[in-house]
Structures are given as structure tokens and as C-alpha cells.
Computed example of a mutant assay.
Amino acid sequence: MSTILIIEQMLNGLQSGVMLFLMAAGLTLIFGVMGLINLAHGSLYMVGAFAAAAVAGLTGSFVLALMAALVAAALAGAVIEILVIRRLYDSDHLDQVLATFALILIFSEGTRWVFGSFPLFLDIPDALSGPVTLPGGIEYPLYRLALIVAGLLVGVGLWVLIERTRLGIQIRAGENDREMIAALGVDISKLYTLVFALGAALAGLAGALVGAIQSVQVGMGEPVLILAFVVIVIGGIGSIKGAFIGALLVGLTDTLVGIFLPELLKLFMDAAPATSAGSAIASMSIYILMSLVLIWRPSGLFGARA
């Protein structure tokens, strides 16, 4: 097993983790501020991917496609917050789950009605196509490297927004005591709509960026949503830093275990059983990781202790 292969797979895991962070950051932001379980977050990921693919197909511009993904997902998030989500803040979590699950069905059928059932494809821009040579002679796809850099930059920007701006102060205050900031004159309805739109925009951006390395199709957001929930449980609900660390752990674990565990098991058993057993264990690896973290720290790595 070569060192180059290990480094390449670690970079793949890092890229996967950074994209998961964009999903999980919006999800944990919405839950932390609003106390809302939003199962429709994966549908906003899908909206961003389809908007990007449609605009790229019409204009041929990847930059315009990313902008379209951000705008479409943010608008979709703002609309459903105003029309549906706003009525669920005082409801119990079961009502929130049922309502947002209904939104999944609406988004899925609406997307199928507009774009059809066949997948769309978003081309990698020419400037980012092909491999780049890293130190040590490692060749790695330039676009995947750009995804890592873009995700890290968005993460830094989100941290600055939350920790260093007046809006961030309001968001953090709303997470701790929404009644108090409402009493201080902050329009809590507008703040909630803005936070929901921000979380939706992050999901849409992730969908657009990942759409260039996989097909864009109906239902693509639900598997990513499950991983995003695992991320925020590991990192701690409501913690952006926890979402970042949790996403990296999940991305690296999922990638490295899936690649290297079958090879390791081949040392002790025949190739076919080793591959089968390794694949089965690898598919459970992130949930095993989540269980171990919760046993050690039930509130997650950076969640508030009870």
C-alpha cells in the first residue's frame, strides 16, 4: 500500500468532509437558533444542484451556475420558512418532522415535474479540469483540490459572520434567549428567515459544487442529509466548530475505512469474503464513530453540557 495512495485518499476524505460541513453548518445553525428539525434541508441541496446544472447548461458559465445555486436555494429556504416553517416553531419535534418530510415529497415531485426523471450533468470548468502535481509527485484532480479550498474559505467566512458581526451576535443571542433579543427590539421573524435562508444557501452551494463530480438527480440530497445529521450529533448540536470537526471526521472515516479495511482483511481471509466484510463494516463505520463519541461525550464534541 503506497504512501501516495494513502495521501490521495486522505485528500478525498478531506474533500468529502468539507462538502459535508457546508450541509451540516446550515443544519446545525437552523436547529441551534430555531430548535427546528428540518428534514427538508437535503431538498435545498438538491435545489442548488439543479439550479446550477440548468444555468450552466443555458449559459456555459460555472460562476453563474454557482450564483444561481446560492440564490435559488436561499429563495426556496426563505419561502418555505415564511409559508410553512414559521408555523412550526412552537410545535413539538414530531410535527416538525412530519411537515418537513412532506416538504421533501413536494420538492422531489416538483423537481421531477420541472426537470424530468433523468439526471443532469454539470461539467467541471476548463480552468479547474485535469490534475495538479502536489509536493512529492502526487497528482490530484484540481477541481477536488479547489473544493477543499472553497469549503475552507466558506467556513472561515461563516466563522467571521457568526463571531465578529452584529448579525452574528443576534444569531448567537437568539440561540440562547430568543425572548430577550425580541424584547430588545430585534425582529425575530426576520432574523429566523435570514438564518434559514443562509442555511439553505450553504446547502445549495454544496449541491452545486458536488454536482460537477456526480450526477444531479432527484433525491440526491437525502443520503447527504443523513450524513449531515451524523456530523452535527458528533460535533454537538448548535456548534459551527463542532460541525466542522465532525464533518472532517466523518469524511475521513467514511473514505479511509471504505478503501483500506477490505485490503487489511485480505491478510486474514480470502479476497471475496474480505471485500464483502470490509464493505459491510465500512458502511457502518461512521455510525460506530458516532456511537463512540456519544459514549464518551453524550452532548457531542463541542455541544453544551447539560
Rank of each mutant, 00 (worst) to 15 (best):
D177P: 12
L70P: 00
L248W: 00
T253W: 01
E163P: 03
G235Q: 09
G258W: 09
L194I: 14
I240L: 15
I82K: 14
G251V: 01
V154W: 02
L39S: 07
I7V: 15
G174W: 06
G221T: 11
A173Y: 06
F196K: 00
D90R: 15
L289A: 08
P298R: 06
G136V: 12
A182M: 05
L36E: 06
I240D: 05
D95L: 14
S117G: 15
V47E: 01
S239M: 09
T100V: 01
S291V: 13
V233K: 00
K241I: 12
L252M: 10
G116Q: 10
Y140N: 10
K266M: 14
A206M: 02
G48W: 02
M10D: 01
L153P: 09
Q170C: 02
M67R: 00
V156P: 08
F244H: 03
A76E: 04
M1C: 01
G13S: 06
T100N: 01
G278H: 03
G60M: 09
A65W: 00
L88F: 04
A277G: 00
L5R: 12
W113K: 08
D95C: 06
N12H: 12
I286K: 04
A25H: 01
P262M: 05
V216D: 00
R144I: 10
I4D: 13
I281C: 06
P135E: 03
A208C: 05
F118H: 11
Q217M: 10
A65F: 06
D123A: 15
G48C: 05
I162F: 12
I281N: 03
S16Q: 12
S276D: 07
T275K: 05
G204A: 02
V55A: 04
L147N: 02
S189L: 14
D123H: 10
A197V: 03
T193I: 14
T28A: 11
F31Q: 12
P141E: 08
A206P: 06
V257T: 09
R87H: 15
L36P: 03
V97R: 07
I6L: 15
G236R: 11
G207N: 07
G136C: 11
A65P: 07
A78H: 05
G13R: 07
S91I: 04
G235L: 08
L66A: 02
L22S: 01
V18M: 14
G246E: 06
F101N: 00
L267G: 14
A208N: 04
D126A: 15
W159N: 10
S299A: 14
A183L: 11
A52Y: 05
